[in-house]
Every structure is written in C-alpha cells, then in structure tokens.
Design a binder for these strands. Structure first.
Length: 956
RNA sequence: GCCCCCGUGGCCCAACCGGCAGAGGCAGGCGCCUUAAAAGCGCUUCAGUGCGGGUUCGAACCCCGCCGGGGGCACCA
C-alpha cells in the first residue's frame, strides 16, 4: 500500500476531548478486541466428533451453519464492495450466537484457477507464492473487519490437505455409475463394483448382448468406463486458443467467447474428461422446489437444465430411419421436410450420386451434385464460430441432401435437408420441420421454396406467419387416426399414443443441460488421480496414493497460441513436468509404467464441496466425519434436504458453481458419504456496491475522489468539466475505495455500520464516502451516552428509567430482533439510531437502558460494544450474552392515534385507548366536528372501522 | 425477440395484511460551541410515490398498458 492512499480525511483532531470516539480510539479498541477474540478462541465452534470433538459444548444448543461464497484471492486486494456479504453474515451470526445458537461461520479461499495463473505468468513468480501472498493480504484486510469467524477453519483449495480430498471426491464420482431405475426411477448413483457384480451375475443384461464372461478384460473395462459418472469422451468441446484451454459450456458466453478474457471459442473434437451431470437433470430440477432460494436463481437453473417433454418420431428412408426430436408431435401432419445437423451420421448415407427428380433450384446452392453441395455446406458450417453463426442475423442456411424420408402419418415423401440451425448436441440432431407452427422452420421454408401446411387453426385475427399458439387441429387425419378439432395438449396425447402403438415413436424428455467438461489445459489446478496404461486407457489411483502433488514446471504458461487460430492443438503445461509425467506403479497387475493425466481440474472443483471441509478441516482420515456432517448439515425433517443454513453470495454464481456443487453433493449423498441431499438449504443473493466514475473531455477516467460537484449539479475535476457514469469499482476507472482507507478514516465498526445501513442487503447501491460520517456520528453519540468524553469514566446511572424510555427500549428490542432475524440490517440500524437519539436527550442514561442498547448494537459494531460492555463492569465477552427480549407489557401503548377518514381522506385524529371496541370507536368518530364539516350534510352510506387505528366514513 | 426484478424528498432508503406517505442517514438551511474551524451539539426545510388507466370505502402496495434502469436467456426442435 502506498503512502498516498492513507487518506486525508480523518475523524479526531488533536484538540478534541481525550476520550471522544474517533478513528484513532476505534483503531485501538478494535485491535485490542480482535487480539482478545483470537487468543481466547471466542468464535471457535465445537464439533460433535472428529479431531475437534467437544460433545459437551455441542449439547443443548441448536446449531447454525452460515456460509459466504468464498473469495478468490485477487492480487488487487479488496475494495469496499467485497466485504458487504461478509459483514451481513457476521452480523447475523453474532445475533444468532446471542440467541443461544452454536454458530459455525468461517471463510476459506478459492485459490486455484485461471486468474491466479495468469497473474503468475505476468509476474514470473510461482503461482503458489503469489496466491499465498494474496491470501495473506486478504486475511489481514478481513481480520481488521472483526469478523467472528472460526479462524481454525480457513482452508484454501490450493492446500495439499484440501486438494487431496478434492481428488478423493473425484475418485468417488469416477467409481460411481447412475442407476436410472433405482429409487422408483428417480435414479441414484451406485458404486461401479455393484454394476460389475450385476453384469457378471446376469441380473443386468450386458450391453450389446452376450455374457460378461465372454468379454475380454479390456472389453469389460470399457463397458464399466462407459457407465462412470466421470468419463473420457471424444466429443465436440469448446476450444479457446486465447486461453490455451478448453472450457465448459457454462464458461462460454452467448456470443461464443470465453467468460474470462473474452477470447473466441471454437468447436473441436478432443478427448477430454466429462462429468455425467445430465444423469441428475431430473433431480437437480425437481429438488429446486424444496430449497429456500431466490426465485430468479431457481428460474435460471431451470432454464439452464432446460427440460422439455416431447417425442421422438421415426421417419423412414431407404438408407435407414431418421429419429427426429420434437416438442410438438401434434403437428406431425404438417411436417413437410426434415432437417439434419451438419454433423449428423446419416448424412453421408443419404446423399445420392445425382440430384433426384423434383429438386428445386433453391435447394442445391448451385452445386452440380448433392455430394459436393453437402460437402461444401458442411465445410462452411464447421468453420463458423458460434459468434459468426449469431452475427449472420439468424438467416437460415442449408442444403438439400438429395434424399427423402417418409412422413409416418401422411405416408408422403419429404425432402431431407442439412442446416446448421439444427444442433447435433441437442435431442437427436434431427428435426421434423413444421413451418406452419414453427418460426424457424417457416423462415427456412420460405427461403428454400418448401411447402407449408397449417395443422393448427390460428385465431381469427391472426396475421402472422408461423402460429405457435393453441388452437384446434386441422388437416391432421389419416385412415387410422384423426387429430382434427383437438387442442394442442389433447392432440399430442392422441398422436403419441398412436405412434407408440405403431412402433413409430415414443414420448421423450430432452434436456438442454450437457455433460460437464472437466479437463483444463492449465497448470494451476488439481491434478487428476488418474494414469494411463500402455493401451491409453485410464486407470484410477487408489486412495492410498493420494494426494497427487502438483509438480513444479519450468513454464506455467500454456503454449502461446493465436487466439483466432481454430485448428491449434492444446498443450497442457504439465507436459513440461519432466519425470513426473510418467510413473512406475503396481495397480494390481505388477509394476508397470504409466503415463499421467496431464490436464488439471477446472476451478470449480474445489468449490464443489468446500462447505463440507469447513466442518472438519483437520480431519486426516476422512473428508469430513459423518457425525459432523450430520450435525451441521443434516436434514431436520423428512421433507428437509439439509445443507448450509444460510449461504450468501452474488447472483453471478446462479448456474455454474451452484449447479456443479449440487451435482457433486448428490453423488456423495447417493454413495452414503453425507446425510444432506442438497448443499445449500437457504441461499441469499446480496446486491453489489457500485460507484460513480468520471471521465474528462478525452474520455479518460479521472480520480473519482477528487471530482467536485458544482452548485448546479455538474461535476468537474481540476476545474475542467467531467462526465459521470455508474458501474463497478475498478482500478481502470479510478474509483476504487478500499476498506483500509475506511479503517484509517473511521474505524472498522463505523465501516460495518455504514455498509449495513446503506440499504437492503439484496439491492445494489452506490458507494458514497461522504455519507459514512453519519454512522460515525451514531457510534460517537452512543459512546457519549455511556462514557464521559473528557474523563473516560462511565456516565450511566443506576437510577431506574422512566416509563416512556422503557417503552422506547422495548419497542426497539422488538423491532431490531425481527429485523436481524429477517436480514433487514438497514432498518435495524435505523431503530438503534432512533433509540440512541431518544437516550441522548436524557441527562444521564440509566444502566437498564444502556446495557440492552449495547448488546443490540454488538452484532453491528462488535468492538465498540465489547469495550462499552467491559466499561459497564463485565469481565467476559458479550459474544454469548443473551440478546435482549422485549417485555410484551411495555409494547402496549397507553393511547393510539385513530385516523378518521371521510371517503379515504384523513379529516380528524383521535387519541383512543388501544383496546377500544369497534362500536365505541364508530360513535366517537361520527361525533367529530371535522367529520361533520367534511360530510357537508351528505348521508352516510357505510362506515368502515378497523379498531383502534382507523375509521373511514363513506358518504352516499 | 422472450422472461424476471426495480422506479418514493436533491441523494441513499422506511412504510409489517391494501389503512395517517416518513423511521434512519447524507446533502441543504438556521443556531450553539470555538480566537478560528468542523467530521462536535441542537433545531429545521424538502416528495404525494416514473406516466396513463382500472379495481376498492381506501392503492406506493393489486390488475392492464406505456416509459426508464438493471439482470437472465437467445436458433435447444
């Protein structure tokens, strides 16, 4: 940190009262209490079992597991936006601890991954060295915040003790297969040994027929490997030369570029590890219902999984059947052509030597024969990136294969096209095109001169083209079945029933979700616990050989590649690890030489299960002791999935991290390693703290802190006008404000109170440094109510409080408790300020008011509260003091104001007892002179009475 | 193009079940303290809820249509 950043704004000038609550005093108090919490281990949560077993401390207290999405330790350090969620969970945790809960709250580091590696490449240092330095800096910045974390539970995913268990979890996934019939067809992961046993005993048929014993051991292994939840596949993957690695679908943006770095991404066929997350599609979807998550996140996950119900229908051709996918089997009579994806395996077989009779000029792309037309089209399609396919304005292109298929309901031949608007990776890679009821098919049919037959009658006022709405079926009958007159839903049922009976098709469920690409050609990640034998087949290492340590390499940088070079080959950095790349092992059939897997796991691997490791981070014999998992995360009832009690983080992880970790957790659940079926029972998305940035006349950002606002609302920097924009904080925008600056200028407690008071936790809002002083003033007034600013002595009196003050106190207790419980920290702060402001007006504050106020402030401003609690004569930390409870008798007011309305407009106010009856109130209201004036002689139609607060008199 | 969320004093935000538009903070104003100053203290001004309709005794809140801001998805058959 440079000297200049220590700020010029400072609370507490030298000639102030000696004991005023200033930034300097706050810093002293805060350091003192942080040291004491640390040395006393105040926030260490006892476990029921494992290395830290302390069953006595656990007994009799309800548990609460609070979790923040753990940070990536960036070299840039924190800005004031980062701690928002951490402060919120800390306030909530401290509150619940005072409510008697055994609170587990900790923070580790998600330290593998691309950014760390790229930073290491830039600086030339070892990624581990820079990562650990960054973690140390973040730990320092966060310790200064006074978070009540269990400091023993702070693993980094890059710790050998941690990634050993990431590799172990990988082995569990690798050694599992998905039995779709298990659990009444919900499906469940089981160990592959059980699959092998069922195949060997004949209870499960061997794929491809024959007996298990009839297969060679290599063939047997291939059958098993084909079932594993982690498997190698030769498939189209997202190859990003700019990053030198392949990427998961989730890491590629809609315009075909990398999420990180914004480089072009190309489709390439490569042999890569995948995770069979699609097997869990149904459960990942269905189990969302039982989660207490924000609806938008559930919505995004549902969209991403993209379950759709439809049918597969077989169209016959002379060269074999084409299975087409559709969600609208009811429109089958209107299917006037078939479209295959360019990569569809049947394309070559279908293409005849010459264009058949009836080929229209528009279908051939000007080629002399189908073979060259299709070959040319495929070449063009393959060379296109997703971005280019988008950029062409979605104009549908394609070419006739020269082949025909038979529509199974009309019996008529329909031409078969190849077009890249059909994707090989979705459904069967083939569609029946129904232009009258599908906009894409309509667009294709009109540009390629193909027939359009309406099979759903559009509404009378329909003027559009393809009609995708509901309506009665028309033109949809053959000798055996008629859909005419049926609505869409009924027509679907009838035609699917007919297709199934005739063996022409069946209803199917299709997912947008694809299997998860799990290999990365990077250095800074977890090595796979996998080696390859001389036949190039993968072999898992036994648990006893874990961890597989990440070796040192000379060059962390993957091969430098041209970001636009689509045909470049990925070269993993670990290929440069020398001797490490091969290993002599005995895996059961004697010592042999094996080649190591040189890819590493993606960054998501560690975050897929870290919440489990916090429970038992020093357990060397298990990834978590089963008792600890059951205690902290186990389900509380039959309908409860279990999981973390409160998980707070940004909405940017709605799909990636939250879907992957749910998947791994379910595998671990199925295999009996955990009792919770979901990792995160309750999720809360915090908003972002954003900031204004300013640009000068040339569009260059200027330091935001030095921009001044004129009286007319304009902004200027060094006298020159600047423009303002709103967005993220970032170095390049010169608008970063750091927690360190806030600690120096105001202290951590003021910073905490300000962040919590800015607005609701889930709403994004702009940072405004000049407003922070309001929170400092509040804490100063609170301090002054308890402590004499000039002597440092106590100001509170032992005299009893008056009734009005007591009532204010108990109203505050009631409201603040409710607000904390509901994560409404902004309104809790407001109520505390309000109460404190009423106490300020007293000559001296009675202890019976001061103590509860201090306790209520403690979750928000813990250092200051602890210090005042100590001055009030208490020896021990207030962390476990019971949170004040409201006395119901003091919440009842002597009188309430009743509003008297005439036709909804307030005309009078009456002071009435809170228990007043409806009839009595009606009489009082009608007797009001102001009401009489407002009525102006009109007759009364009705009187609405809501005792004791409102009467509404409605004239005729 | 489709879907979701949000629009309240100059600014950040409250308003619990549809019932007095205002809790709190910033900024502004007035005053006190001070040799002077303020990030100290006290007092205080300020909106009818983005716009247009509707439902209701009564709408910031419910419904419909616009406008503005933010986010997600985007050839998924």
């Amino acid at each position: 940190m440079s000297e200049q950043t220590s700020t010029t704004i400072r609370a507490g000038e030298p000639d102030q009262p000696a004991h005023r609550y200033t930034a300097d005093l706050a810093a002293r108090i805060e350091a003192q209490w942080q040291d004491r919490w640390h040395s006393e281990g105040t926030f260490r949560a006892p476990n029921p079992a494992g290395p830290w077993a302390d069953p006595e401390q656990v007994a009799g207290r309800e548990k609460l597991y609070i979790l923040d999405m753990f940070p990536y330790p960036s070299g840039a350090g924190l800005h004031v936006g980062h701690p928002l969620g951490y402060i919120a969970t800390d306030v909530y945790g401290r509150f619940q601890r005072m409510r008697g809960r055994n609170v587990l709250h900790a923070l580790g580091y998600d330290a593998f991954g691309l950014p760390a590696e790229q930073y290491a490449i830039q600086t030339g240092a070892h990624p581990r060295a820079t990562t650990e330095a960054n973690i140390a800096n973040m730990r320092r910045q966060l310790r200064r915040l006074g978070l009540a974390h269990d400091d023993r539970r702070s693993p980094a995913t890059t710790d050998v003790d941690f990634y050993r268990w990431t590799q172990w979890v990988f082995l569990q996934v690798y050694d599992a297969w998905f039995d779709a019939e298990a659990d009444e067809c919900r499906g469940r992961a089981r160990h592959v040994d059980e699959l092998r046993a069922e195949l060997a005993s004949g209870t499960r048929p061997v794929p491809g027929g024959g007996t298990w014993g009839g297969l060679s051991s290599a063939e047997q292994r291939r059958v098993i490997d084909d079932h594993r939840l982690a498997y190698l596949s030769d498939a189209l993957v997202n190859w990003c030369p700019g990053l030198g690695t392949v990427l998961a679908n989730e890491e590629v943006t809609a315009d075909g570029r990398s999420d990180i770095g914004n480089f072009p991404v190309f489709k390439r066929n490569l042999r890569q590890w995948k995770m069979r997350i699609t097997a869990y599609g149904d459960r990942l979807l269905a189990d969302l219902d039982g989660l207490d998550w924000p609806d938008p996140v559930k919505h995004m996950q549902r969209n991403w999984i993209g379950r759709s119900e439809g049918a597969t229908v077989r169209f016959t051709t002379e060269r074999g059947d084409i299975s087409v996918s559709t969600t609208r089997p009811d429109t089958l009579f209107g299917a006037t052509f078939v479209v295959l994806a360019p990569e569809h395996p049947l394309v070559d077989a279908l293409v005849p030597g010459a264009w058949p009779d009836g080929t229209k000029p528009a279908w051939t792309a000007g080629a002399g024969d189908p073979t060259s037309a299709v070959a040319a089209y495929r070449e063009v399609a393959a060379a296109k990136t997703d971005l280019e396919r988008q950029a062409e304005g979605r104009e549908k292109t394609g070419v006739f294969t020269g082949g025909f298929a038979t529509n199974p309901v009309t019996g008529r031949p329909v031409p078969v096209f190849v077009a890249d608007y059909v994707l090989m990776g979705y459904g069967t890679g083939a569609i029946m095109a129904v232009p009258a009821q599908d906009e894409r098919d309509w667009a294709f049919a009109t540009s390629y001169d193909l027939p359009i037959v309406r099979t759903v009658q559009p509404s009378a006022d329909w003027t559009g083209e393809a009609f995708t709405g509901d309506g009665p079926a028309v033109n949809s009958a053959n000798d055996e079945v008629s859909l005419d007159g049926l609505g869409v839903a009924d027509a679907k049922l009838r035609i699917v029933e007919w297709l199934q009976r005739k063996g022409l098709g069946e209803s199917t469920v299709t997912y947008r979700l694809r299997d998860w690409l799990f290999s990365r050609q990077r250095y800074w990640g977890e090595p796979f616990p996998i080696v390859f034998d001389e036949d190039d087949q993968p072999r898992a290492l036994p648990e006893s050989m874990l961890p597989v340590l990440l070796p040192d390499v000379e060059n962390y940088r993957p091969q430098t590649l041209d970001p636009d070079d689509a045909v470049s080959e990925p070269i993993p950095p670990l290929s440069g690890a020398g001797d490490w790349t091969t290993v002599e092992l005995d895996l059961g059939d004697g010592v042999r030489t094996y080649r190591r897997e040189l890819n590493v796991m993606p960054q998501w691997a560690g975050s897929c299960w870290y919440e489990l490791r916090y429970l038992d981070p020093e357990n060397a014999s298990a990834f978590v002791d089963p008792q600890n998992e059951a205690y902290w995360m186990g389900p509380r009832s039959a309908s409860d999935p279990g999981g973390v009690d409160l998980y707070v983080g940004g909405v940017e992880h709605a799909v990636l991290h939250l879907l992957y970790s749910r998947f791994w957790h379910k595998v671990l659940f199925d295999l009996g390693h955990v009792t919770s079926s979901e990792p995160f029972r309750r999720l809360f998305n915090q908003g972002y703290i954003q900031a204004y940035a300013y640009r000068d006349g040339r569009g260059q950002p200027v330091p935001a802190a030095e921009v001044v606002e004129g009286a007319d609302g304009s902004w200027s920097f060094e006298g020159a006008p600047v423009t303002r924009e709103y967005g993220k904080m970032g170095k390049s925008l010169k608008n970063v404000v750091t927690p360190d600056e806030m600690y120096d200028a105001y202290g951590a407690d003021t910073f905490r109170v300000y962040e919590m008071s800015m607005g609701p936790l889930d709403v994004s809002r702009p940072w405004e440094t000049r407003a922070v002083v309001g929170s400092l003033r509040f804490l100063q007034r609170l301090w002054r109510n308890v402590v004499d600013e000039s002597t440092g002595g106590l100001r509170v009196t032992e005299a009893p409080a008056d009734l009005a003050s007591r009532q204010s106190l108990h109203r505050a207790i009631e409201g603040v408790s409710r607000d904390f419980e509901a994560l409404r920290f902004n309104t809790a702060v407001a109520k505390l300020i309000e109460l404190n402001n009423t106490l300020t007006k007293l000559d001296a504050v009675p202890r019976e008011l001061a103590e509860p106020l201090v306790l209520m402030t403690a979750p928000l401003a813990p250092h200051l509260a602890e210090e005042m609690w100590r001055l009030l004569g208490h020896q021990t930390s207030l962390a476990f003091e019971p949170f004040p409870t409201a006395d119901p008798a003091l919440l009842v007011l002597d009188a309430v104001t009743c509003v008297v309305q005439v036709q909804g407009k307030v005309r009078d106010r009456l002071e009435v007892p809170p228990g007043i009856g409806e009839d009595e109130l009606r009489v009082l209201a009608l007797a009001s002179e102001k009401v009489t004036v407002a009525l102006a002689g009109r007759e009364i139609r009705t009187v609405v009475v809501r005792a004791p607060k409102l009467v509404n008199i409605v004239p005729v």
